[in-house]
Every structure is written in structure tokens, then in C-alpha cells.
């Protein structure tokens, strides 16, 4: 039924930045197949005439006045940093490029 394959699960792991080992990929493939077969039934009743609901209580135009408020101190910003130097967070080399 389901189109969940190990290759797809591995690709989803890349998108989600989770390094899945082969055992995890295999287990997830089976579990996701079962789950997806079960939840795919939403499309039975989701006909084109039914609008989607993103927010349970519909509101609009909720804004904040453009007034400077509280900011964190540098100490607060960095207090949980795994690594930091020169007032900034430090990360290992980035593969790829600036976006």
C-alpha cells in the first residue's frame, strides 16, 4: 500500500538533519508504513469544497507596536551555548555555502 521505502526514510533523515543508522532506517520504514496506511484516510473526506483550518480560533491582524522592548544580555544569549567565542556562537566548518 504505502510508498515508504528505506531510501525515502534516509532522505527524510537528511531533510530533518537526523543521522539515522541502517537499523533505524529499517525500523522506521516499517513503522511509518503502518502509520501512513492508517492516517492516509484523511483524504477520504477532505474534498475540494472543504476549506482548511490552520488556526482553531480564527483571528487576524494581531500586531505588536513598533516599540523597542526587553532584549537579552550577551550573557543570557550565550548562557547555554555549547561553544562560543568573541561574543558569538562557534560552530565547526560549514559545508556548502552562504545562502
Amino acid at each position: 500500500m504505502s510508498e515508504i521505502t528505506p531510501e525515502l526514510v534516509r532522505h527524510l533523515g537528511v531533510l530533518a538533519r537526523i543521522q539515522l543508522d541502517d537499523g533505524e532506517v529499517e525500523r522506521l520504514t516499517g513503522q511509518l508504513s503502518a502509520i501512513v496506511d492508517n492516517i492516509a484516510k484523511v483524504s477520504e473526506v477532505a474534498t475540494p469544497d472543504v476549506p482548511a483550518t490552520s488556526h482553531p480560533i480564527p483571528l487576524e491582524n494581531v500586531f505588536r507596536p513598533d516599540v523597542v522592548g526587553e532584549m537579552l544580555t550577551i550573557a543570557q544569549v550565550l548562557q547555554n551555548a555549547p561553544d562560543a567565542t568573541e561574543d558569538r556562537f562557534k560552530v565547526t566548518a560549514i559545508l556548502g555555502e552562504e545562502q
Binding site: 533523515g13 537528511v14 530533518a16 538533519r17 537526523i18 543521522q19 539515522l20 543508522d21 547555554n80 551555548a81 555549547p82 561553544d83 556562537f89 560552530v91 565547526t92 566548518a93 560549514i94 559545508l95 556548502g96
Partner: peptide
């Protein structure tokens, strides 16, 4: 910025993220 970091020797930040999340 916070939370567990698992170092990956010779790895890129992408590797570190993926390993830490795993």
C-alpha cells in the same frame, strides 16, 4: 545555540547537527 552537541571528528556542522539530533 543550546542543547546537546555531539562532536564529530573531522565533521562539518551538518554532521554535528545530524549526530547530535540522532
Amino acid at each position: 545555540r543550546f542543547g546537546l552537541r555531539v562532536d564529530v571528528p573531522g565533521g562539518t556542522v551538518e554532521d554535528v547537527m545530524a549526530r547530535s539530533r540522532d
